[in-house]
Lab assay of single mutants.
Amino acid sequence: MEVRTIKVFTTVDNINLHTQVVDMSMTYGQQFGPTYLDGADVTKIKPHNSHEGKTFYVLPNDDTLRVEAFEYYHTTDPSFLGRYMSALNHTKKWKYPQVNGLTSIKWADNNCYLATALLTLQQIELKFNPPALQDAYYRARAGEAANFCALILAYCNKTVGELGDVRETMSYLFQHANLDSCKRVLNVVCKTCGQQQTTLKGVEAVMYMGTLSYEQFKKGVQIPCTCGKQATKYLVQQESPFVMMSAPPAQYELKHGTFTCASEYTGNYQCGHYKHITSKETLYCIDGALLTKSSEYKGPITDVFYKENSYTTTIK
């Protein structure tokens, strides 16, 4: 009895394709271990004539594949690729409408935090270190965002349907971005203890939790000093293409032309909904596939993004 075979390709990165001759009487799992086709788990399936010449994702289970996976995804987590594939199996079914010149995501599976993050990423200057993220990001900007969303979920250790947080998501993504040249110098002034300067680099240099107003941050924000008295913390120097200011959701007025974009969060910790506000020729609110415009805006804002380049204080 002759062994019926077909020729397929296996890959971990969709760049390096490895030619395989597979036995049609055995499952993919018996031949390769966990195997995925377009995100779908085909591990328990036997090869079919229609699979001839198709590319299958496999887990990096030998040295060659491990090197290829690390170079593309910059992670050695053995569960990463499987999590990416199972997320992709959902995100490829989502709709990605162009809204006001940006790629958004039609609401499904509690994905409003991903839509808000995706919209924000198209408006701030950011370059990702893992080629996987950078490639998928370019495709997302062009309207094909399924891979990018699935990668975000995998890097953030999230599953489809789980509630997510924009600030946490951005923080994970910033860790995989090139923020080497970003720098922030802060000064804390206390009447009792004097003053202390701190220099922050990388992710810490672009994120701040405690106030939404970048102007206020430049002037000074009140913080408790270690001595128990009130101290003032203010920005001395900022070198970065953008800054992200966050605070627990509270009524906040966004003035046209003073910011790049913002995240609105309605609801409580267990259950809520994100919308995205962007400042173009007027203010726009993007909620999944829905767009509304207004000249002014007041609502429960939790993150505001500002364009920056270089700032030095005039406070002496």
Rank of each mutant, 00 (worst) to 15 (best):
K233A: 12
V22W: 03
Q251A: 09
Y73S: 05
S79D: 13
C112Q: 04
Y138L: 14
L119Q: 01
E52N: 10
W107M: 00
F217W: 07
V58T: 11
K316W: 15
C156Y: 00
S181C: 11
V304T: 02
N268L: 13
L114D: 02
L118T: 07
N100S: 12
D165I: 06
E204I: 07
T226Y: 09
D38W: 11
A136F: 07
D180I: 05
L283G: 03
A154E: 05
K46W: 12
T76V: 11
L133V: 03
Y172W: 07
Q123A: 05
L212N: 06
A289T: 09
V188E: 04
D23R: 12
S279H: 06
K255M: 06
Y274W: 08
T55H: 11
T11A: 07
R4M: 06
N100Q: 14
F148L: 13
V185W: 00
C193H: 12
L102S: 08
L163C: 15
L200M: 08
L179V: 09
D77Y: 03
P47G: 08
H74R: 11
K275N: 08
F174A: 01
K95W: 07
K93F: 07
K219F: 03
F9L: 12
L151E: 08
F174T: 06
T55I: 13
G101S: 04
E296P: 11
L179I: 05
T278A: 08
E125I: 00
N309Q: 09
A108D: 02
E296S: 14
T159W: 10
S294Q: 13
Q238L: 02
R167W: 01
D62T: 12
Y274V: 00
F242H: 06
G257L: 05
G288R: 03
P300G: 03
R141F: 08
P97Y: 06
V8D: 08
F80H: 08
L65T: 14
A150K: 01
K219Y: 05
M207D: 05
G29R: 15
Y155R: 00
W94R: 03
L81G: 07
Q251S: 09
A117W: 00
T76W: 10
C271H: 13
S263V: 13
L88W: 10
Y214A: 00
A150E: 11
A132H: 06
P241R: 08
E308W: 07
P47F: 02
Y306C: 02
I315D: 15
T55L: 07
L153N: 07
G143Q: 11
K183L: 11
T192C: 05
Y284L: 14
F305A: 00
L153Y: 13
V99A: 01
G101Q: 09
I152G: 01
Q197D: 05
L153D: 04
P47T: 03
I301Q: 01
T312I: 14
R83K: 10
A140T: 07
N129L: 03
L126T: 04
K233W: 06
L102K: 01
Q195A: 13
M26K: 12
A145W: 08
R66I: 11
H18Q: 09
S86L: 11
F174C: 02
K158R: 07
Q251I: 12
Q216W: 03
Q216L: 08
Y234I: 09
P131Y: 04
A289E: 15
S79M: 11
G288W: 01
L186R: 08
E204Q: 14
L291H: 12
D62W: 04
T5R: 12
V236C: 04
Q230A: 11
V99Q: 05
G82T: 15
L173V: 09
I152D: 00
V3P: 14
Y297P: 01
W107T: 06
L59G: 07
I45L: 12
V42H: 09
Y269F: 15
T11Q: 09
E204S: 11
H74K: 13
Y96D: 08
K95P: 03
G101R: 02
C193A: 02
T313L: 14
N111V: 01
A262F: 01
P300M: 10
E296W: 09
A231T: 02
N187V: 10
R83L: 08
R167K: 10
D41C: 11
L37P: 03
H256P: 12
N100C: 15
L173S: 08
F70D: 11
K280C: 10
V58P: 06
G220I: 00
V189F: 06
E125H: 05
A262H: 01
T116E: 05
G33L: 04
L291Q: 10
Q197R: 09
A247L: 00
N110A: 07
T260A: 09
L212Y: 10
F32N: 08
A205H: 01
V206I: 08
K275T: 11
L291M: 14
L254T: 06
L200P: 00
T91Y: 08
V22G: 07
K316S: 15
Y57D: 04
A205N: 01
A140V: 13
E168G: 15
V42E: 06
A177H: 00
Q197S: 11
S310D: 13
R83Y: 10
Y311H: 09
V67C: 14
L88E: 06
V67L: 15
T258Q: 09
D41R: 06
A146I: 03
T103H: 12
L163A: 03
T169Y: 05
